[in-house]
Simulated scan of single mutants.
Amino acid sequence: MKIGLIGTGSMGSLLLDAFIYFGAIQPQQLYISNRSKEKLLLLSERHEGLNISQNNIETVTHCDILFVCVKPLQFTTIIEEIKDHVRSDQLLVSITSPVQLHHLENNLSCKIAKIIPSVTHKVGSGASLVMYGSRIQEKEKQLLHDLLSFISKPIEIKETQARINSDFTSCGPAFMSFFLIKWIEAAVEMTGISREEITCLASEMMLGTGTLLTQGGLTPLQLQELVAVPGGITAQALSQLNQSLDGVFHNLITTTHNKYVEDVEKLNELLGDIN
């Protein structure tokens, strides 16, 4: 099996590194192309045997599965470039959330899927969200599922729920890190504790909490109740948090959804003009 990657930015490179590191594929199976040749050379130095394509068409012609890892508004250029070179038996996988399955199926003759990856795949963890186009058969579903299973827990979702799901799986690590940073800054300022020490403790706490929720059989509410004894310090602090954060998460979801709708509308205009 040959796999192609168009776009080796932060997420494209992360997927490539993870696939190789966790044994999903060998460098010799990969063909990559990118606007910046410097990024391609750096990746080839990191992974001996990696195939660097001269252009996107060369990547397409060599691969069975093609991951397109570019920004939303770059898809018009990519589609125009490769549309006459894709094959009906190929599987093209977009990792770009606002690009809809119908955008791709209306303009390309190959089989289409979409995934929303996460930075957590860097350590072989987290969920990858998977959506399939109308031409996909069970064998392609299984092929993509098996590939993603090396680096994540693949979960099939409805495309209509992609935004809210990716708020948690893809954006979530940044949101949780933001919370930790603010908490750590307050701890350092108010108590004088070493930033390195408290960051280490906070990181270990996050790891343990995630393990309890994924492997320990606890729900978030059960975990909260296990720690927050009525009348205790944790319970009192949680009461304060509940008041302080009132409405925050509704605003967060509104913000991410509004941006998503804006991007989809732009793509509807742009990709609708491609025949």
Rank of each mutant, 00 (worst) to 15 (best):
Q74A: 14
G124A: 09
A174C: 03
H102D: 14
K139W: 10
I233N: 08
K141D: 04
E105D: 06
H62S: 08
Q222I: 04
K122Y: 12
V99I: 15
H62F: 05
P27H: 09
R135A: 13
C171E: 03
T254C: 13
L221F: 01
V227F: 00
I198K: 05
S128R: 05
D17C: 04
E140A: 07
L41Y: 12
M205P: 02
K83S: 13
M206P: 00
F19N: 07
K83I: 08
A237S: 12
P27C: 08
E265F: 00
I184E: 06
Y31V: 11
N258T: 14
I57V: 15
Q90G: 05
S149Y: 07
G23Q: 10
L40H: 06
D246W: 00
L42P: 01
S134W: 06
K37M: 12
T76L: 01
K39S: 12
A235T: 09
Q26I: 04
A162R: 09
W183E: 10
H103S: 06
A228H: 07
V119W: 02
D146I: 07
I116F: 12
E196S: 15
T199R: 01
F179V: 14
V188Y: 07
T209L: 09
L267F: 03
N107F: 05
F178P: 00
L42A: 13
P72S: 10
S170E: 08
S203W: 02
V86C: 08
Q28H: 11
I52R: 09
N34M: 07
T234L: 04
L30R: 01
S118K: 08
T191S: 15
V229G: 01
V261I: 15
M206Y: 11
K71S: 11
A18C: 07
I136M: 09
T199P: 01
L73A: 08
Q28V: 06
S194C: 09
T256S: 15
I3K: 04
K139F: 11
V248E: 05
V229D: 00
T191D: 02
T209V: 13
I82T: 08
V248S: 12
K71A: 11
D167K: 04
L148T: 09
S125R: 15
P72V: 11
Q100S: 10
I233K: 10
A113W: 05
A174E: 07
A24C: 11
T199W: 09
K71V: 12
E196V: 15
L148Y: 04
A18T: 12
K39W: 02
L30W: 02
G4Q: 01
I253F: 13
F179S: 01
V68F: 07
T160N: 12
Q236Y: 05
C110A: 10
I79N: 05
H257S: 12
G272R: 06
R195L: 13
A237R: 10
T160G: 10
S149H: 03
C200A: 14
A187M: 10
I157C: 04
L218F: 10
I6L: 14
D64H: 13
Q90N: 02
V119I: 15
Y21H: 14
I95K: 03
M206S: 13
T96V: 02
L40P: 01
L271F: 06
G192W: 02
E196C: 01
T191N: 04
V264R: 11
S109E: 13
